[in-house]
């Protein structure tokens, strides 16, 4: 049952994942964390960090990782987890194949059509909203600590968030370097 759900969820993500890897991440988060509770918010943040720092497309990385972790979180052994990651990865790729076979010719014909352009012009700001939603949903106690219970972690987290934002946005620091630096900061400040 879990495997069928896993397949359906990632098929849906592959089918409606407009706007590249990050938009897909916000969709994975909505499905896997918010509605199905297969992963915690922290585990999702870990997936994003790992997907960013390893080779390959982020959509594939996160599908493979979520597939494995969500099955193992349900109490299955590691070998079944491999099956979970295989199902999630195949499911996220499958719509692309179907779209090539079924829609490519039609879309190729209509891509300059004003209606097609109107639809894609409307989807672009929607994707911006999707990313904004991911940012809001990830700002949790799990990821930042709490002001009252763990004030030290909260202050460090806010600082690291601002530093990572300023570093990557204004100073164009590479995201992988940023992840490594913040991991180092975590190591020094928390352990």
């Amino acid at each position: 049952m879990l495997f069928l759900e896993l397949f359906c969820v990632f098929f849906k993500i592959g089918l409606f994942g407009f706007g590249g890897g990050y938009a897909m991440l916000s969709m994975i988060q909505a499905e896997v964390v918010t509605s199905n509770h297969w992963l915690t918010s922290s585990q999702f943040a870990d997936i994003v960090a790992i997907s960013q720092s390893t080779p390959g497309p982020i959509g594939i990385n996160s599908a493979t990782y979520s597939g494995y972790i969500s099955v193992v979180n349900e109490g299955y052994p590691a070998i079944v987890g491999i099956l979970g990651s295989l199902i999630a990865t195949v499911a996220v790729v499958l719509p692309s194949f179907l779209l090539v076979l079924l829609v490519l010719k039609i879309l190729n014909h209509y891509r300059e059509h004003p209606l097609t352009k109107t639809i894609f012009a409307a989807l672009r700001p929607t994707v911006v909203g999707l990313l904004l939603a991911a940012v809001i949903v990830l700002m949790t106690k799990d990821n930042f600590g709490s002001v009252t219970d763990t004030p030290w972690q909260f202050c460090v987290s806010v600082f690291l968030f601002l530093a990572a934002f300023v570093g990557t946005f204004f100073y164009k620091v590479h995201p992988i370097r940023m992840i490594i630096l913040c991991g180092l900061a975590g190591f020094l400040l928390y352990s």
Partner: peptide, 9 residues
């Protein structure tokens, strides 16, 4: 340490 940075990314 990494989790808040991911939100910024």
């Amino acid at each position: 340490g990494i989790r808040p940075a991911v939100v910024a990314l």
